[in-house]
């Protein structure tokens, strides 16, 4: 069909030289063709993203608590149960703490590394690759390896033992500083630090690459001019480089936030939900509730809450970057 269409168009019509600078009017057949090529994707996204989200939302408002569907309307009951649930409250705490720690370390470390690597050092590509290669691995591999490295009865602890430190890593159930908030204890679950280490190991390369690209986009003349004016390297960093990296930092934060908020594989492979749910995350809870306990309605509710938490970041960001484009 498409082929035939092409054949029928008058071959090699003479272009009128006078209309040259103006883009030629797009033929309506071509426009239709273009849209029809895009249409399957639009339909797919409409159904499989938006439609399915709607369906999950519907399930989350139902009474489907067992293996067989019961889609009668339950209102917000599942959400209310969730927010009163110890495990879910723990999940919210864990997600918040994990996201903050993870983003902060990844962004800072990535930026520092990028600044150092950008200093025209020797063996630059070797260093870069050492920090970047974990990006190519799966969270499952990362989880499996770090579970072994940080295993409390083995791993790096044999080194720390000699120093007299008894680190329990992801089996530690301490929450610091331990403020009671509702049913759960607020603070930083020490066990999460082990997970943050693994996640940082994997994702720092991402922010490093972005910052490097950003640094290389800063014109050398700008720095040179500042140096001529007698600015110190540190001043150059603070007054010129840092402000110009700000959009990159925004991107890094957004990307890391959406990874962190939906994290599942790393936790699943490395620690599971942990004693007293100190390393549990909504992603794991959703999986177990839905596919292990067959409580689809509650699983759907967790999924919708996860979606909303991501959307809070992403939607403004998408709108912002679309405006930036125009």
């Amino acid at each position: 069909m498409a082929e035939a269409n092409l054949q029928n168009t008058p071959a090699r019509t003479q272009p009128n030289p006078k209309t040259r600078p103006k883009r030629k009017k797009i033929r309506s057949t071509d426009r239709l063709l273009a849209i029809s090529f895009l249409l399957p994707s639009i339909v797919a996204v409409a159904v499989f993203v938006y439609g399915f989200i709607g369906w999950t939302g519907y399930v989350s408002l139902s009474k489907w608590h067992a293996i067989l569907p019961d889609l009668s309307f339950a209102g917000l009951e599942n959400y209310l149960t969730l927010f009163q649930n110890f495990r879910f409250q723990s999940d919210l705490r864990n997600t918040l703490i994990f996201t903050i720690l993870f983003i902060a370390v990844v962004a800072l470390l990535g930026q520092c590394l990028a600044v150092m690597i950008d200093k025209k050092i020797k063996a630059e590509s070797l260093f870069r690759n050492i920090f970047l290669f974990p990006m190519a691995l799966s969270f499952i591999v990362t989880g499996v390896v770090w579970r072994w490295v940080l295993n409390p009865s083995s791993g790096v602890n044999l080194l720390f033992d000699k120093l007299g430190w008894d680190l329990k890593w992801y089996t530690d159930t301490t929450i610091w500083p331990g403020i009671e908030i509702g049913k759960v204890t607020g603070g930083i679950p020490i066990a999460l630090i082990a997970v943050v280490i693994a996640a940082v190991w994997q994702m720092t390369g991402f922010s490093l690459a972005m910052y490097l690209a950003g640094l290389r986009g800063i014109p050398e003349e700008l720095k040179e001019a500042a140096r001529m004016d007698g600015a110190s390297e540190f001043q150059i960093y603070r007054k010129i480089i840092l402000p110009m990296l700000r959009p990159i930092t925004l991107s890094v934060i957004i990307i890391m936030a959406h990874i962190s908020l939906k994290i599942f594989d790393l936790i699943y492979a490395m620690t599971g939900s942990g004693a007293n749910f100190v390393t549990d995350m909504p992603g794991v809870y959703m999986f177990e509730t839905t596919f292990r306990s067959h409580n689809y309605a509650e699983g759907g509710a967790i999924a919708i809450i996860m979606l909303l938490s991501v959307a809070i970041f992403i939607v403004p960001y998408l709108i912002h970057s679309r405006k930036g484009e125009q």
Binding site: H65, A66, F86, T173, F277, S293
Partner: peptide, 18 residues
């Protein structure tokens, strides 16, 4: 039933620590 067991398992997990 499974729904009860899920809740007991959760309670046990919490109890083992707390």
């Amino acid at each position: 039933p499974e729904s009860y067991l899920t809740k007991v398992n959760q309670a046990v997990n919490i109890f083992v620590t707390q």
